[in-house]
Amino acid sequence: MTAIFEHFNFVVVIVLMMTGLFVVFATQNMIKKLVGLSVFQTSVFLLYISLSKVSGGQPPIIDKKDLHGASYPADGGYDAAPDSAYQAAEVLYSNPLPHVLILTAIVVGVATLAIGLALVVRVREVYGTIEDDEINKIDYNENLEGVAR
C-alpha cells in the first residue's frame, strides 16, 4: 500500500495514458482519434515532469544569492530575501532537464497535430466522411486502392 502511495503519480498517469490509447484504438472518428492521441501525449508529459519533481524543491530558477558574476545591482532593485529559512540551507531545485525535453516535445506535438488535422480535412474532401469504417467501405466499393478484381 505504501508503494502505491509513494508512486501515486505513476499509477494515475498510467491510467490517463491508457485512456488516451483506448480512444485512439476504439473510435472510428478521426478527430476523436487525434484528441485521444493528444490526451496520451499530455499524459506522457505528466510522467516526465512528475519524475523531475524534488520534494521541498523550488522551480529551477537560480536564487539570486546563489548567482555568481550576475550583473544585478548590489543594492536596490530587489531587497534581500526576507525568509531566513533558506539563508543557511542550500536551495533545492527540481531537475530542469525533463522540463527542457518536454518543452521541445510540446511544440513538436502541436506541429504533428496540425499535420494530422490537415490530413483529416483532405480525407474528408475525398471521401466525404471521417469515419474509419465508412472510408474502408468506400475504398472497397469504389476500388480506390486499385486492386484487380
Partner: peptide
C-alpha cells in the same frame, strides 16, 4: 506542472496545448 515546479512547461502547455 506549476505544482511540480515546471513553470516554463506550464505556460507553454497552457498557451500551446
Amino acid at each position: 506542472f506549476v505544482s511540480l515546479d515546471a513553470v516554463d512547461v506550464a505556460f507553454t502547455e497552457a498557451a500551446v496545448g
